[in-house]
Amino acid sequence: MSDAPTESRPAGYLDLSKAVLYREYLIFVRYPANAAGGLVFSIVFFALLFYGGRMLAGQALTDSIEGIVVGYFLWTLSVGAYSSISNDIGSEVQWGTLERHIMTPFGFAPVALLKGVAKVVRTFLISSVILGIMLVITGTSLQLNLLTTVVVAVLSITSVLGLGFAAGGISVLYKRIGNWLNLLQFGFIVLISAPAFDLGWTRFLPLAQGSALLQRAMIDGTRLWEFPLVDLLVLVGTAVGYLGLGYLLFQRATRRARRLGVLGDY
């Protein structure tokens, strides 16, 4: 059987997009236990938080329950996006596939970006289920304008993707420190509850501006076009800025790993 006469067609970015997104889809549908486990854990954790808090704080918690639901929704989104990116990079190093991605005509950047998109969509789907269950548990209702919620939430967690890339870069250099980097997820709680509009500078932290806008959108019913332009620009700026900075750090870490000869080591 001859192997010679195959007339191949060059792959473009559309082919690459299909391949990466299809791979992410296959892993999502073929191994649902991971997603289901995360979903159950998140709901149980929230239920403990809600019922435990109501026993301790009573009416005070009930008065602020909408803010807690929105904050928790954003936290599950953020944790999902961050851990999937940082853990994914660690896994690629472990499997030896990071080197293969770097050694391609496309490079790792578009693959990483596409994976980021897939992770965000996946995380959004899971977090939406969690949100629905939280609303049932708490008996709360929110103003859910789909366009506003999706745009603000996606821009909010884009900055977290940047943190995920930075953490992935640290994993490439120092290996096996994923558990330590996962502790950063608890820092997201601080960022989500940061008083973005009271203290001017905190709005430039990852998640802070997005959290504040999402609270307004989901609790007060503010629509996307009703936000002041400056607030939206800060949201977009922090999203793009942290994503760019995170990816830059990842690339610098990868380059240093190549200089030290530890890129493929695990």
Binding site: T6, R9, A11, P105
Partner: peptide, 20 residues
């Protein structure tokens, strides 16, 4: 198929090669 694509080749165009 995946590694053919990231290597710069549309996978359907080399399906015969993959079979071989």
């Amino acid at each position: 198929r995946y590694f053919a694509t990231i290597g710069g080749v549309a996978p359907d165009s080399v399906a015969d090669r993959h079979d071989r």
